[in-house]
């Protein structure tokens, strides 16, 4: 893959299991990928595939069950004291629901400045000046600083969430479904803002979403998840032009295209059934219960995560004979 110094985040065999009574939910089960500095990596998949759990585990909202995460060459799970403090500033998160992720009892000024306060970066006039500057960056203005979250529309609240994430001048932002709660016309506003900020500040994004058309629009590379596993990872054009994994193929063909002529003529792969439970996932390849190309080997062996085409990784037995 890319040269070592360009990798900002290195995830190796990450697992996150939740214990519910005697049962174990294997929410994320062995995921390996790199994020390159300055890129946007999109993570897509259906509900329950573990994409949000990955985001939360990376930023240490959850403790990982096993595996390692290296951020700027430092093991995230071994950080303490000053190193942890540094990490907490450099990695930030934007949440899905702009209604639930802003404290209704706090003024916008205090919401955005919370990180600044915790890390003791500015006080008094300087603190306010920084917040106003951030508000202007995200397209709001100084008079908004003394209002409460409920006085804003969904799109404006998401802008506040973005301003909060930017307050500590991070390198890396995890955006967990940042636009799915917004209306179509507002979604484009927020995505364009995120793109602009990336260009100006050299940010790296991990963009988690289920809306494939929006992910394609914003991402340089895309990872596709199914039931706790990464099944395919490649740059976004080759993923859409030549999807390798049968799940990716089905997912892409299921996305409705807002063009009647295309809808009438294109072929769709409609998957049977539902996603199995992550408490007791199928043996071998987890997708085999719904896969149109299922073979005998799929039930016996877990497919290897391999580079089937240059820079195009896939975990599927169909690509075993290749190369």
């Amino acid at each position: 893959m890319a040269s070592k110094e360009n990798v900002i985040l290195e995830v190796k065999d990450l697992k996150k299991h939740f214990h519910i009574g005697k049962q174990v939910v294997q929410a994320v089960d062995g995921v390996t990928f790199d994020v390159i500095r300055g890129e946007t990596l999109g993570l897509v998949g259906e509900s329950g595939c573990g994409k949000s759990t990955i985001g939360r585990t990376l930023i240490r909202l959850y403790e990982a069950t096993s595996g390692s995460v290296k951020f700027n060459d430092q093991d995230v799970y071994k950080l303490k004291g000053k190193g942890l403090n540094q990490f907490n500033q450099k990695m930030q998160m934007i949440f899905q629901d702009p209604y639930a992720s802003l404290n209704p009892r706090m003024k916008v000024l205090d919401i955005i400045a919370e990180g600044i306060d915790i890390h003791g970066l500015a006080k008094g006039e300087e603190r306010r000046r920084r917040v106003v500057e951030l508000l202007e960056v995200v397209g709001l203005n100084a008079e908004h600083a003394d209002r409460f979250a409920h006085e804003f529309s969904g799109g404006q609240r998401q802008r506040i969430g973005i301003a909060r994430a930017l307050a500590l001048e991070p390198d890396f932002i995890i955006a967990d479904e940042p636009i799915s709660a917004l209306d179509v016309s507002i979604q484009a506003q927020v995505v364009n803002l995120m793109k602009k900020l990336q260009k100006e500040r050299g940010l790296t994004y991990l963009f988690i979403a289920h809306d494939l058309s929006m992910v394609k629009y914003i991402s340089d590379r895309i990872g596709v998840m199914y039931l706790g596993n990464l099944v395919e990872l490649s740059d976004s054009d080759s993923l859409y032009d030549e999807p390798l994994h049968p799940y990716t193929q089905a997912l892409l063909s299921a996305v409705p295209v807002p063009d009647p002529e295309v809808s009438r003529t294109r072929e769709r792969i409609i998957l049977e059934g539902d996603v199995p439970s992550p408490i007791n996932p199928p043996s071998g390849c987890r997708f085999r219960t719904r896969c149109p190309h299922v073979m005998d080997i799929c039930a016996q062996e877990v497919p290897e995560w391999k580079e089937a085409r240059p820079k195009h990784w896939v975990a599927c037995h169909l690509y075993n004979e290749d190369k």
Binding site: S185, I186, A188, N192, Y217
Partner: peptide
């Protein structure tokens, strides 16, 4: 505005999305 602010899967889009300003 509605049609232009939606990204499309089947297009090679380096064109910027045109959001509808305001609310």
């Amino acid at each position: 505005g509605l049609l232009a602010s939606m990204p499309r899967l089947d297009q090679d889009d380096n064109t910027e999305l045109l959001p509808i300003p305001g609310s």
